[in-house]
């Protein structure tokens, strides 16, 4: 039986925000992997740079924050009201 999907608040930061052209979006998806597919369809500009089209998953260097917890686990379950942030993995200076 298909799982229920959920309304999510998704926020983009850094390059994902620049490519998507917005900070926030609402989406429905039961897992992070499903959410990546939704985002790939709605924001094709994310494909290649942020999302690997052949894997259907984030490129290395990008990470989700789900209710305050950093994760790259595609099977992470998403529930109604979950806050999801999508961001480039962080790095500071070089000196």
């Amino acid at each position: 039986m298909a799982r229920d999907t959920s309304m999510l608040s998704v926020e983009f930061y850094g390059l994902p925000a620049l490519l998507a052209g917005r900070r926030r979006v609402e989406a429905t998806a039961p897992t992070l992997r499903a959410l990546v597919q939704v985002l790939a369809e709605r924001f094709p500009a994310l494909l290649g740079t942020v999302i690997d089209p052949s894997e259907g998953w984030l490129n290395r260097g990008y990470v989700f924050v789900v209710d305050g917890r950093f994760t790259r686990d595609p099977e992470t379950e998403l529930r109604p009201g979950t806050e999801v942030l999508l961001v480039a993995a962080q790095a500071g200076g070089v000196r």
């Binding site: 930061y13 850094g14 390059l15 620049l18 290649g48 490129n59 990008y62 480039a88 790095a91």
Partner: peptide, 22 residues
């Protein structure tokens, strides 16, 4: 490759709003 796209396209200034959010 994609690992450095964030530096090429935006640079480290991208951190600021995300850090504020966290």
């Amino acid at each position: 490759g994609p690992e450095t796209a964030k530096y090429r396209e935006l640079g480290t200034v991208a951190n600021l709003v995300f850090f504020s959010r966290l």
